[in-house]
Simulated scan of single mutants.
Amino acid sequence: MLTFIGLGLYDETDISLKGLERIRRSEHVFLERYTSILTGTDPGRLEALFGKPLRMLDREDVENHPETFLTLAKDADVAFLTAGDPMVSTTHIDLRIRAASMGIETSIIHGASIVSAVCGLTGLQNYRFGKSCSLPFPYGRWAPTTPIEVIEHNMAENLHTLVYLDIQPGRYMTVHEAVGMLEGMAAERGLSIPVYVGVARAGSPSPVVAAGDAAALEGVDFGDPLHILVVPGDLHLMERDYLETFAGL
């Protein structure tokens, strides 16, 4: 049995009781740490809570060599842990399909997701979000164009865009970096983005949420990671009221 278990948004206290019970009875516990991480804790604190040793998985382990844990799941209970909710990531959807093709039974224990947390923190209505996108760091002379294409399309449809910010080993994209990149891309396409909404440390005791144009957000100290960004469409009256009340719009 392979069980995908979401750990929630910020630290070890976010896990559900169901998830904790399943981990404690699993024979092998793996922690995937590249699609997202819990910045409010560390592996030692997780192991102390679980009473189990953790085996860490990086991108190469999950995408190219999943046999490491899939083979174990044929004959033993294996817990595959992720920050947030496991099936928000297409990587994990693919992994579950692979497991099924090998005849491995699977199950999911969900955790709090940034997808729903952003709606609660910003007041932006969940049914008004269009396609989301990921914004990676530039590599050499290469810079992505897909994010601004997605944003432009959503804005034309009056939809909000959730922009996932790049996570690399020891490096986390900030709201300020993301806004700077998007402003440059938008200028090249003749596009104006009037409002951004930045969120930092969702699920923590002190998240930061701030809304405004690029110049306004320059003066906001978002603090430690993880950060995420929303580019909203035209705001509904209640959405604007919420952002004015809780995000300084």
Rank of each mutant, 00 (worst) to 15 (best):
E63V: 08
F129P: 04
G84Y: 09
E67M: 02
S89H: 09
G140D: 01
T145G: 13
H92F: 04
T91A: 12
D61I: 02
E60D: 13
L135H: 08
K74L: 03
M87Q: 06
D94E: 14
Q125F: 13
A100N: 14
P66C: 05
D77N: 09
V78G: 02
V88W: 06
I151G: 01
T145P: 10
E60W: 13
L70K: 11
K131T: 11
M87R: 09
D58Q: 11
G103D: 08
M87V: 01
T122E: 02
T122V: 09
A117P: 04
I109D: 05
T82E: 02
Y127C: 10
H110Q: 15
F129V: 03
P53E: 05
H92D: 02
N126W: 15
T90R: 02
E105Y: 09
D77V: 04
L135W: 02
P147I: 11
P138T: 01
R98I: 09
A79I: 03
H65P: 03
T145L: 14
G140S: 01
T145M: 15
I97W: 10
T91P: 07
A112R: 14
G84W: 07
L54K: 00
P144R: 06
F69W: 00
L57C: 02
N126V: 14
A112W: 11
I104Y: 12
V88F: 12
R98D: 05
L70F: 08
E60F: 15
I148P: 01
I151Y: 03
E60Q: 14
H110K: 15
T90V: 10
M102I: 10
L135V: 10
G111Q: 10
G140T: 01
I104S: 11
F129Q: 05
R98E: 10
R141M: 11
Q125S: 13
E60G: 12
P86Q: 06
T122S: 12
L121R: 07
A79L: 04
N126T: 15
P138F: 03
L57D: 03
V62K: 05
A79G: 02
Y139G: 12
G130N: 10
M56H: 07
T91F: 05
T106R: 14
L72S: 05
L70E: 03
S116N: 11
T146Q: 14
L135E: 06
G120F: 06
E60K: 13
E105I: 05
K52F: 00
V62R: 04
E105N: 13
L135N: 09
E67T: 02
R96M: 05
L54N: 01
A76N: 12
C119L: 11
Y139K: 15
V150A: 06
T146K: 13
K52L: 01
P136H: 09
A76S: 13
P53K: 10
L54Y: 00
R128V: 00
L95P: 03
E149G: 10
A117E: 06
A79D: 08
I104N: 10
S134K: 01
I148W: 03
A79C: 08
P86K: 04
T106K: 15
R98Y: 08
Y139R: 15
S113Q: 07
D94W: 12
K52H: 00
H92M: 04
I97S: 11
K52D: 00
L95H: 00
T82K: 00
N64K: 15
F80V: 04
